[in-house]
Design a protein around this nucleic acid. Structure first.
Length: 301
DNA sequence: AAGACGAAAGTGGTTGA
DNA sequence: TCAACAACTTTCGTCTT
C-alpha cells in the first residue's frame, strides 16, 4: 500500500475509489490506477460483532458465467457416507460427471457469456479498471444478451462497447482509442456497438466532461496540482459559455491544460500536450483560440 | 533549429431528406 | 441511400524565438 507520493514525497494522497485511482494531493501525480477492494465496508470491534456482521459465503460474481455458484461432482468415487462406489457403477458416475459439467454451460447464451466475460476481464485488466467497474459492465452485458442485442455482432465489440459505456457513466475517463487498443477492436466498430446499445437499452450516458481528462493528462505531462485546478476552472467557465458543446472533450481538456500550464510558468509545447491527449496541435490551437477569445484571457505565451 | 500559427484540402462520421 | 455538414486531421508555408 502506498503511503506517500514517489514523485514529491507528499503524504497527502487522495484515494478515489470511484475512479479507482490514487492521486497525490500536492503534485497531482496519479500513483496507481487500480485500487482494489480493501475488505468489508464494516468494522467489528469484538468477536460477537464480527459474527453478526459477516454476511458469509463467497460473493456472487457477475463476472463469472454462472455467477460463481457451481456444483460439481467430485473425482472421488465415494458415496455420501464415504464408502466406495462399486466397480459396476463407476462408468455411470463418469457419465454423470461429464454431463453435469456439460449441461451447466450448454445453452448458447451461456457459451456466449463464457467468452464475453473472459474478454471483459482481459480488457478491463489491461485498462486497469477496478473490480466494481467490471461487475457493472458484466451486468450490462447480461442485460444486452437478454434483450438479444448481440446477434450479428462480434462479442468482443459489444464487450468493448459495454466497458466504454460504463466508464463514461462512472466518470472514469477512458477514450475510445484506449479501449480500442486494449481490445483490438476498431474504434468505429466499438462506436457502432455502443450507439446501438445506448439506443436499445435506453441507458442515459452523460456527455463526457472534459475536466475528467485533466488529472490524467496532467500526470503524464508532470504538471502540478495547481495547473490542474486552473485548467478545470477554465473548463468550467467555458462550459457555462456553452462553447464546449460539439467539441471533442479531449481537445478541450488539452487546450485548457496548455493554457493553465503557461499561466503557471510550467509551459509545455503544443506537441507534448497534443500527444498525451491524442489530438493534433492544430486542434489545440483551435480550442485555445476559442477559449482565449471567449474568456478574454490576457496572457501571452 | 524548434516551436507557434493558420490556411487549405482531406477524412470519417452524423443527420435529414 | 445520398448529399450536406461539423469536427478533426494532415500538410505545408510563414513567422517568431
Amino acid at each position: 500500500m502506498v503511503s506517500k507520493c514517489p514523485e514529491c514525497g507528499s503524504k497527502k494522497l487522495i484515494r478515489d475509489y470511484e475512479k479507482g485511482e490514487i492521486i497525490c494531493g500536492k503534485c497531482g501525480l496519479i500513483i496507481t490506477e487500480s485500487i482494489h477492494d480493501m475488505g468489508p465496508e464494516w468494522r467489528a470491534f469484538d468477536a460477537e460483532q464480527k459474527e453478526k456482521r459477516a454476511r458469509g459465503g463467497a460473493p456472487i460474481k457477475l463476472t463469472k458465467p454462472n455467477k460463481g455458484l457451481v456444483t460439481e461432482i467430485d473425482q472421488y468415487n465415494r458415496d455420501i457416507r464415504g464408502t466406495k462406489i462399486s466397480q459396476k457403477k463407476q462408468p455411470q458416475l463418469y457419465r454423470m460427471r461429464k454431463w453435469h459439467k456439460r449441461v451447466s454451460i450448454s445453452t448458447s447464451l451461456e457459451r456466449n457469456l463464457v467468452i464475453a466475460l473472459a474478454e471483459l476481464d482481459r480488457i478491463a485488466s489491461s485498462l486497469g479498471l477496478p473490480e466494481n467497474i467490471k461487475e457493472s459492465a458484466a451486468l450490462l452485458y447480461r442485460k444486452a444478451v437478454k434483450e438479444e442485442l448481440i446477434r450479428g455482432r462480434l462479442i468482443e465489440s459489444v464487450v468493448a462497447a459495454v466497458i466504454y459505456a460504463i466508464c463514461r457513466m462512472r466518470g472514469i475517463p477512458r477514450t475510445l482509442d484506449e479501449i480500442s487498443k486494449a481490445s483490438g477492436i476498431e474504434k468505429k466498430e466499438i462506436g457502432r456497438a455502443y450507439r446501438f446499445l445506448k439506443a436499445e437499452l435506453d441507458i442515459d450516458v452523460p456527455l463526457t466532461d472534459p475536466s475528467q481528462y485533466v488529472p490524467k493528462f496532467a500526470a503524464q505531462l508532470r504538471l502540478s496540482g495547481e495547473v490542474q485546478q486552473t485548467a478545470i476552472k477554465l473548463i468550467k467557465k467555458s462550459l457555462k459559455k456553452g462553447l464546449i458543446s460539439g467539441r471533442g472533450p479531449t481537445g478541450v481538456a488539452a487546450a485548457a491544460l496548455y493554457i493553465a500550464a503557461a499561466i503557471h510558468k510550467e509551459k509545455r509545447t503544443q506537441k507534448e500536450v497534443a500527444d498525451v491527449a491524442g489530438v493534433t496541435e492544430v486542434t489545440i490551437r483551435n480550442r485555445y483560440r476559442e477559449l482565449k477569445k471567449e474568456l478574454n484571457l490576457k496572457i501571452d505565451l
